[in-house]
Design a protein around this nucleic acid. Structure first.
Length: 814
RNA sequence: GCCGCUGUAGCUCAGUGGUAGAGCGCACCCUUGGUAAGGGUGAGGUCGUGGGUUCAAAUCCCACUAGCGGCUCCA
């Protein structure tokens, strides 16, 4: 007798369980026709489900249709509906690929692994056996096959099977990826709170010949290990499944002994919980047993014809569970929309986004250059790019001055000892440039027959003195004995600095501080070098040498909340001035289960609370992310997306309890005793490189006047007006405007075209008429109608004001 | 770092074994033109680097290097 509450608050009662489709029909036949799925909330949050879902208890139900209407009455594709379409499209694409690619001479086919929807489409990871190939040349054929399947309008038919039957079925089918998905679906590995024990006693039979039979108790019969699974050996897969089940239910080495009490109890627990509750669901594209099917949680659209249009986008490779030592899978990306028009729009948007790519714009506008001979990931700032960077730095520096920061300069390298003290070496050596060891020392080591391994050891070793100091101050052994070497064996060297904190800590430590001086805020545009993996490098957004707009705030514990607030208000100011609204905020907190963190629990609680409160005060949505804190303290990160949807972290604010004792920093408190300062690391831009990269995309190269490399260009109509043009130019330059003149032998139309391509905000067309009245004809970037003719002095005044106030061009943000 | 794709003039790209191409840009000349490309002439390339196959390689093969996409990583 379900009572079903609809989104408008009305209630429909039914005498017997009904499907969502029947509810839709009861509401109206047109709704039923338009429906592709439903969202059911029976108290535990809304869940997207099939239209065929049987509803037997009270719930809130909304019917999902292809489009939704917003408050203004505009229709757009419903995100939930697209999710259903794309999830379904992934199935159809997988079927089409298996059809098109066929089998190799051993009869092996493409094996499916994992195919979820994404924000913009879907992908399917597949194992492609030797002898088979998927290439972009096949896309047309695959899309054709997809279109056929869609046209056949086969229903997505869900059927369920107890795990004890479903797992053997998957094992027989010989697809370990699906078996793995099934195990995960029923709570093994990663979700041990759900059902791990209940499925332990599942028996499953293995096809003849494999020789492995897993018995009811599932113990002692499996010889397979989790890593040694053969691609198509169903027996070994079965064994591995059993091993995974054992592991999931918490079987330890000692309870593997069936005679032990632990084992007995464990088995009893398993038996007690084994109620067959674990159910696997499959979806057939058509009729189960007859048509193509896939292990799948669902939900799906009712039938293939409801998917709409599907396009295969690209191929990439991925590893099973992201483990590069595991199987290599081919990831096929696709997307789907209900209407061709929506797909076309999506493709257009992608095309437009590609045009905004900072790497393309950076090249055409000559903002930066990366040169093979200089090195990967090392940015050469060209004159134009340098203007943007300098303006941004001046902007920040002015804000810092307002907030009472002091500026410092530090060198690009530091002794290894410095980073051994901070803990960055050799702990993070994989992401650092190799140490610089003095030539004589190197030669001496080489001539004394020192091996590579030994040399590394001597470079990475720590002196007795340093180790003792660090361990004492930490109150535990943070430098283990095996890293301690006698002084005469240590090899001294330098390192390109991977961060500025140690240098700043040394500045703080170089003079005594009273609590009255706190906080001490040391700021520097500090250039750091990190050995990023070559495959990760990306234009300006992921580089190996970059300049952070860094600062370290040395403060008392009480000052943390106010200082965090100050940092956030700075970030907010910056984002506001630049019109950046599309960002999200992550608050990285401790993982409650982990002990890797330094600092007391009470301090952490306070700092985390400060971070959360500060983030909440921003008025922007933020997410708390347990486990994402740095080991030395909680942090707040600002994240933006680039044109192709990749997220980049920009600004960051991090609380650090570790640096104080590492560097033995102190201030004298009101009690006339030394206290450890807490350090806040913060960089509102993150790095100049990444920020500029993101900014190029944000503005699509059309920077506001204050940031534009060239703010204004004078375009004389002909060389008869060149003299007046140069007069105008001189006036602008005298006013501090970055300006040039295009006195080339060209028509003004051509000059406008060139200047427009360079995205110069203001163009001054000057001819005899303007010269007579000492005025300029102003053309504004991005505005159809020009400003008309203005007296030169008035225009200069207007432009100076726009620049000084860091306003958008004519006050209009893009 | 791993997998795949790509590398030809300053830029964007054609060129699938037989004499290196186009458009834009650049230089010069003509043109003196009022709001998104006026016309002409010319210069410019050891086809990413190194090997190999071949009578002959931009083209086929191998290695390296760099870029792109993805994976993994990002104190």
């Amino acid at each position: 007798m379900p009572r079903i509450t609809l989104p408008d608050g009305s209630v429909k009662s039914f005498d017997a369980p009904v499907t969502a489709r029947q509810v839709a029909e009861a509401i109206g036949p047109r709704l039923a026709l338009a429906a592709v799925g439903c969202k059911i909330n029976s108290g535990g949050g809304a869940e997207l489900r099939d239209l065929s879902t049987l509803i037997s208890s009270d719930c809130t139900l909304s019917i999902i249709t292809e489009t939704r209407r917003d408050a203004q009455g505009n229709t757009s594709p419903d995100p939930d509906a697209l999710f259903l379409s794309r999830h379904s499209a992934a199935h159809v694409m997988a079927e089409a690929i298996q059809d098109v690619v066929g089998a190799n001479e051993k009869g092996e086919r493409v094996q499916l692994a994992y195919g979820p929807p994404t924000d913009t489409g879907f992908f399917y990871d597949m194992f492609v056996p030797a002898g088979l190939k998927i290439s972009s040349d096949d896309f047309a054929r695959i899309e054709k096959r997809i279109a056929e399947i869609i046209k056949e309008d086969r229903p997505f038919t869900r059927y369920e099977m107890p795990a004890k039957e479903g797992l053997p079925k998957l094992a027989r089918e010989g697809n370990k990826y699906k078996a793995d998905n099934a195990l995960r679906a029923i709570g093994c590995k990663g979700l041990p709170t759900q059902l791990p024990a209940g499925i332990k006693a599942i028996a499953f039979e293995i096809p003849s010949g494999s020789g492995t039979v897993v018995s009811g108790s599932g113990r002692g019969t499996s010889g397979g290990s989790g890593t040694g699974i053969g691609g198509s050996d169903s027996g070994r897969i079965a064994a591995a499944i059993q091993a995974a089940l054992d592991e999931a239910c918490g079987c330890t080495e000692k309870c593997k002994d069936e005679s032990s009490a632990e084992c007995k109890k464990c088995r009893e627990d398993c038996a007690a919980q084994h109620a067959g509750a674990a159910v696997l669901s499959f979806y057939a594209t058509g009729t189960p047993g007859k048509n193509w099917e896939d292990l799948c949680r669902g939900p799906h659209v009712p039938s293939t014809a409801r998917i709409g249009v599907v396009k295969i986008m690209s191929l990439a490779s991925a590893y099973w569970h992201g483990d590069e030592n595991s199987d290599r899978l081919i990831r096929v990306y696709g997307t789907s929309f209900f209407k061709q028009k929506d797909l076309d729009e999506h493709l257009n948007r992608l095309e437009e986004a590609r045009k905004r790519d900072h790497r393309a714009i950076g090249k055409t506008l000559r903002l930066f250059h990366i040169d093979e001979d200089v090195g990967q990931g090392l940015i050469l700032w060209t004159p134009k790019g340098s203007v943007i960077r300098k303006e941004l730095q001046a902007f920040i520096a002015a804000e810092l001055k307002k907030q009472g920061y002091t500026e410092v300069f530090t060198p690009h390298i530091g002794r290894l000892e410095l980073y051994k003290t901070s803990g960055h070496f050799p702990y993070y050596k994989d992401s650092q440039f190799a140490p610089i060891v003095e030539r004589n020392a190197l030669e001496e080591l080489c001539s004394s027959g020192c091996s590579c391994a030994e040399m590394l050891n001597r470079v990475e070793g720590v002196s007795e003195r340093l180790a003792r100091g660090l361990n004492e101050r930490a109150g535990k052994e943070i430098i283990s004995k095996d890293r301690i070497l006698p002084d005469e064996q240590l090899v001294e060297g330098f390192m390109l600095k991977p961060m500025n904190c140690p240098h700043h800590a040394k500045i703080f430590g170089s003079a005594p501080h009273s609590y009255r001086d706190m906080p001490v805020r040391l700021a520097e545009f500090g250039t750091v070098y990190r050995w990023e993996q070559s495959g990760e490098l990306n234009g300006m957004t992921r580089v190996r040498g970059f300049t952070q707009d860094d600062a370290h705030l040395f403060c008392t514990e009480d000052q943390i909340p106010a200082e965090i607030q100050g940092c956030l208000s700075l970030v907010k100011t910056i984002f506001n001035v630049l019109g950046m609204k599309d960002y999200r905020v992550r608050v990285g907190l401790r993982d409650p289960d982990s002990s890797k963190y330094t600092g007391s629990s009470e301090s952490w609680d306070k700092a985390e609370k400060s971070c959360i409160e500060a983030a909440a005060s921003l008025g922007v949505s933020f997410s708390k992310e347990p486990g994402e804190a740095a080991f030395y303290g909680p942090k707040i990160d600002f994240v933006v997306k680039d044109v192709i949807g990749r997220e980049w972290q920009l600004g960051t604010v991090q609380v650090d309890y570790q640096m104080g004792f590492r560097f033995d920093l102190s201030y004298i408190g009101p009690d006339n005793r030394p206290h450890r300062p807490v350090v806040i690391h913060r960089a509102p831009f993150g790095s100049m490189e990444r920020f500029c990269g993101v900014l190029i995309e944000h503005f699509a190269g059309a920077f506001p006047t204050w940031l534009s490399p060239e703010q204004c260009r004078v375009l004389p109509i002909s060389d008869k007006s060149n003299d007046y043009g140069h007069k105008v130019l001189a006036a602008l330059r005298a006013a501090g405007v970055r300006c040039s003149i295009d006195d080339a032998n060209e028509r003004v139309q051509a000059k406008i075209k060139v200047a427009a391509d360079e995205k110069i905000p203001y163009l001054l067309i000057v001819g005899p008429r303007d010269a007579e009245t000492n005025s300029v004809s102003v053309r504004v970037r991005g505005i159809e109608k020009d400003l008309g003719t203005l007296p030169l002095a008035k225009f200069v005044e207007m432009l100076k004001n726009e620049i000084a106030e860091r306003k958008a061009v004519l006050g209009v943000m893009p």
